[in-house]
Amino acid sequence: MKNLLSILVFFLSFISFNAQQTEVLTMKYEDVEERIQKENDKLLVVNFWATTCAPCVKELPHFMEINNKFKENPNFKMILVSLDRLVDKDRVVRFIKNKNLTAEVILLDDIKRMNTWIPRFEKEWDGNIPVTLFYKDGKKVHFNDGEMSKEDLEKTISEHLK
């Protein structure tokens, strides 16, 4: 009976672990643009990254630390837009869990139209990642091309969150 109880506990733990798997929304450019406009009552931090981008992966712990600091503020929201391929969605989900990403993650499934949507986000963006855009009241207020330090991220948020 004791063995049966142990097996049952293990099985239930396994089921509940699987039930907690992270889901990643897949969107086209227009959906992300619409999402940015819907969050127009907040300072919205939108970071474009990929699991295969070393500078992106390096800066993510800073982003999570800052996200955790500000996430209770109703005027703040962080979204991480993954530029990984749709076929790599499972890898993105595992990455989110392994790195304990606390911000919302969206998988942008629109790689074929990059030359169309990149300049719509930012004319100065040459397509390299990481890139971070800051929106307030639905309007872009800051563009950061390249890796962002924790200090610069926090400073930019603090300047625009007022």
Rank of each mutant, 00 (worst) to 15 (best):
K2Y: 12
L4G: 14
L4I: 14
L4N: 13
L5V: 15
S6E: 14
L8V: 13
V9P: 13
F10N: 13
F11D: 01
L12A: 09
F17C: 07
F17E: 02
F17W: 02
F17M: 04
N18Y: 11
A19W: 03
Q20G: 11
T22W: 05
T22I: 14
T22Y: 11
L25H: 08
M27Y: 14
M27Q: 14
Y29A: 03
E30G: 04
E33V: 10
E33R: 14
E33I: 09
Q37S: 13
K38I: 10
N40Y: 06
D41R: 07
K42M: 06
L43T: 01
L43C: 02
L44D: 03
L44W: 12
V45Q: 08
V46R: 06
N47H: 05
N47G: 02
W49R: 13
W49F: 15
T51K: 11
T52F: 10
C53R: 06
C53L: 10
C53H: 07
A54Y: 02
A54L: 04
P55C: 09
P55L: 10
C56Q: 04
E59K: 06
E59L: 08
L60D: 04
P61E: 07
P61R: 08
F63K: 11
M64V: 14
N67T: 07
F70H: 12
F70L: 06
E72G: 10
F76M: 08
F76S: 01
K77E: 15
M78V: 02
M78H: 05
I79S: 02
L80D: 05
V81G: 08
V81L: 12
S82Q: 09
L86Y: 11
V87R: 11
K89R: 09
D90A: 13
D90Y: 03
D90M: 08
D90N: 12
V92Y: 05
V93S: 09
R94H: 08
F95W: 12
K97M: 12
K97S: 13
N98R: 10
N100P: 00
L101I: 14
T102A: 05
T102L: 05
T102S: 07
A103Y: 13
E104Y: 06
E104T: 08
V105S: 00
I106Q: 07
L107G: 00
L107I: 02
L108M: 07
L108P: 01
D109C: 01
D109R: 06
K112L: 10
M114E: 15
T116M: 14
T116Q: 15
R120W: 04
F121M: 08
E122S: 15
E122D: 15
E124H: 02
D126I: 13
D126W: 11
G127R: 04
P130T: 01
T132S: 05
D137Q: 14
G138L: 03
K139Q: 10
K139M: 02
V141Q: 03
V141L: 03
H142M: 07
H142P: 00
F143P: 00
F143I: 06
N144W: 11
N144V: 11
D145G: 04
G146W: 09
E147M: 07
M148Y: 04
M148H: 03
S149W: 11
S149L: 07
E151I: 05
D152C: 00
E154H: 02
K155V: 00
K155E: 04
T156D: 00
T156S: 01
I157T: 00
S158Y: 10
L161N: 00
K162A: 01
